[in-house]
C-alpha cells in the first residue's frame, strides 16, 4: 500500500503537466475573442488599441511561444495575470480557494454525516415509512435546483425569521479578519475575535446546508443500497448466528463495508465541489473558486481558466490519494494487499 501511495505521489507532477497542457490547448482552440475581456466593445475596431492590448498581454505571440512562456512562468509559481481581474491568477486563487474550501468542507461534513445517518436508518427500517421519508429527502436533495433552494432558505431563515444571516462570509459591514489561512472561522479565532468567529460560523450555516443537502441525497441513497446489499451477505448471517445484536451487526459489519463506496463518492464530491459550487456561491455571494471559474469562462480569460483547471485537477488528484488512504484505514484487505 505504501509503495502504491508513493508511486501515486511521484506521478502527480506528470499528471499536473498533462492537465496544464490539455487546459492550455483547449482554451486556445475555443471560439471567441479573448480581447473581449481586455478591451471594451467600443474599442474593438480601434487598431491602435487592439495592437497595444495584444502586445501587453502577449496575444501577438505564436501558440508554442505562449505555451513555453506559460510553462516557464508556472514552474516559478507564476500563473499569469487574469485578463478580467488584472491581478495575478495565483493571488486571485489564493484568496478564493480558502473561501471555497471552508464552504465545501462544511458542506461535505454536514452532507456526509446526515447522509450516512439517514442511509443507515433507511436500511435498518427498509420498506417502512422511515425508509420512504429518507428516500424522499434523498431524491429532493439530488433533484431540487440549488439556486431555487438557496433563495428559498435565504427568504425563510434570513428575511422572514431573521434567525440566520444573509449572503456573504461575514456581515456586510464587518471587515475580514487578518489573513492567515483564509478560513474566516479559523483566522478570526487566531486573532481572538470571537464575535467575528460566531458571525463567520453563522454565515456558513445556510450555504453549507444547501450545498450539503445534495451530498446528503447522494450519500444516503448509496449507504442504503450498499447496506442492504451487505446485510444479505453470509458473514452478516454468521455474525447474527453468533448472537451479535442488531445495531452492532448493522454498524460494525454493515456500515463498515458500506462505507467503502461512500468514501469514494465523498472524495470525488469534495473535489467536484471545489470548482462546482458555483450556484451556491452566486446566490450566497460567496467569493470562491466556482464563481471565479464561471466568470473566467464567460470572458475567455485564459490564464484564469487554466489556473482554475489546475486547482480542480489537483483537487481530484488529492481526493483520489486521500480516498486510497481512507480505504486502507477502513478495509484491511487494501492495507495488506489482500483480495
Amino acid at each position: 500500500m505504501t509503495r502504491t501511495l508513493i508511486r501515486r505521489i511521484l506521478m502527480m507532477p506528470f499528471l499536473v503537466l498533462g492537465i496544464v497542457t490539455v487546459a492550455f490547448m483547449l482554451s486556445q482552440i475555443t471560439r471567441g475573442d479573448p480581447l473581449a475581456a481586455l478591451i471594451g466593445e467600443r474599442q474593438m475596431g480601434n487598431p491602435t488599441i487592439v495592437a497595444a492590448a495584444k502586445a501587453k498581454w502577449g496575444l501577438d505571440r505564436s501558440l508554442p511561444e505562449r505555451y513555453a512562456i506559460y510553462l516557464g512562468n508556472l514552474v516559478q509559481g507564476d500563473m499569469g495575470t487574469s485578463f478580467r481581474t488584472r491581478q495575478p491568477v495565483a493571488s486571485d486563487l489564493s484568496r478564493r480557494l480558502p473561501a471555497t474550501l471552508e464552504l465545501v468542507v462544511a458542506a461535505v461534513l454536514i452532507g456526509g454525516v446526515t447522509g450516512v445517518f439517514l442511509g443507515v436508518l433507511a436500511a435498518k427500517y427498509r420498506d417502512t415509512i422511515v425508509d420512504t421519508v429518507v428516500r424522499l429527502l434523498a431524491l429532493t436533495g439530488s433533484s431540487v435546483p440549488m439556486f431555487w433552494l438557496g433563495l428559498l432558505v435565504l427568504f425563510i431563515f434570513s428575511v422572514r425569521l431573521g434567525i440566520l444571516p444573509g449572503p456573504g462570509r461575514l456581515d456586510t459591514r464587518t471587515a475580514a479578519p487578518e489573513f492567515v489561512t483564509g478560513f474566516f472561522t479559523i483566522d478570526s479565532l487566531l486573532a481572538g475575535q470571537f464575535a467575528k468567529f460566531r458571525e463567520a460560523l453563522a454565515h456558513l450555516v445556510l450555504p453549507a446546508s444547501v450545498l450539503g443537502w445534495t451530498v446528503t441525497g447522494i450519500v444516503a441513497r448509496l449507504v442504503r443500497a450498499s447496506m442492504i446489499d451487505v446485510m444479505s451477505q453470509d458473514f452478516v448471517l454468521a455474525a447474527r448466528a453468533k448472537g451479535a445484536g442488531a445495531w452492532r451487526v448493522l454498524l460494525n459489519h454493515g456500515l463498515r463495508n458500506a462505507l467503502i463506496p461512500t468514501l469514494t463518492i465523498l472524495g470525488f464530491t469534495f473535489a467536484y465541489l471545489i470548482t462546482g459550487a458555483v450556484l451556491t456561491e452566486t446566490i450566497f455571494s460567496w467569493p470562491g473558486i466556482g464563481s471565479y471559474a464561471v466568470d473566467a469562462a464567460r470572458s475567455l480569460d485564459y490564464p484564469a481558466i487554466i489556473g482554475v483547471t489546475i486547482v480542480g485537477g489537483f483537487a481530484f488528484l488529492i481526493a483520489n490519494l486521500l480516498t486510497d488512504i481512507a480505504y486502507a484505514i477502513v478495509d484491511p484487505r487494501v492495507r495488506t494487499g489482500g483480495a
Binding site: 433563495l151 435565504l154 427568504f155 434570513s158 428575511v159 431573521g162 444571516p165 444573509g166 449572503p167 456573504g168 456581515d171 456586510t172 459591514r173 452566486t282 446566490i283 450566497f284 455571494s285 467569493p287 464563481s291
Partner: peptide
C-alpha cells in the same frame, strides 16, 4: 462606504430587507 459584490437581483432585494445592504 462598502460596495458589496451581489450578482443576483433577488439576493440584492433580500439584503435590503434584512438591512445587510
Amino acid at each position: 462606504v462598502i460596495i458589496k459584490q451581489v450578482e443576483d437581483a433577488v439576493t440584492q432585494a433580500q439584503m435590503l430587507q434584512t438591512g445587510d445592504a
